[in-house]
Design a binder for these strands. Structure first.
Lengths: 73, 73
DNA sequence: CACAAATGTTACTTATAGTCCGTTGACCCA
DNA sequence: TGGGTCAACGGACTATAAGTAACATTTGTG
């Protein structure tokens, strides 16, 4: 699994855990809905600033977000 | 402290811990020497793929890299 | 099935990430 | 003093991420 897909997968998992739609998350993170879709689907080489926006919108932390991250195959 | 500076600070700390120069790290990560300087100085909104390159060059993991990351003020 | 809501895709512009080449200054030491 | 290494900076350039619109598809629910 490449890094872009791993990031997308992690975002999707946390989003679903919160039970919100891509659109709701996008709004909260101040990003475009279609951009969120492409990030979740591993199509974007996202920057650290946008990752930060999403982590905040998911109400989590960098540490939590990346916990166990390297175990994803 | 903004996210770009926090990333730069963390990279620099780990690099110095390994006792290598910016140029050696850049070479290992297959990035430009001048780019490494600007990243460490918090001037770049680095992408996830380049973060991955640097983390690998530093011989660490995402989990380790971001451990305690949110505590930086 | 019909309809709505959620998600996905394509294609595009603009904004900026990242490279390359060269310079400068600090530091160390023979 | 002169040569080496290292870090920071700048200008000019190319590569690519950000961001959006329009449309398509999937999914869930009556």
């Amino acid at each position: 699994m490449n890094i872009k897909s791993k990031i997308g997968q992690r975002i999707r998992a946390l989003r679903l855990q919160k039970g919100i739609s891509q659109e709701q998350l996008a709004l909260k993170a101040e990003l475009d809905r279609t951009y969120m879709t492409s990030v979740e689907n591993g199509k974007r080489n996202i920057s650290i600033q946008n990752i930060e926006k999403i982590i905040k919108a998911l109400e989590t932390t960098f540490e939590e977000f990346f916990k166990g991250f390297d175990l994803i195959v």
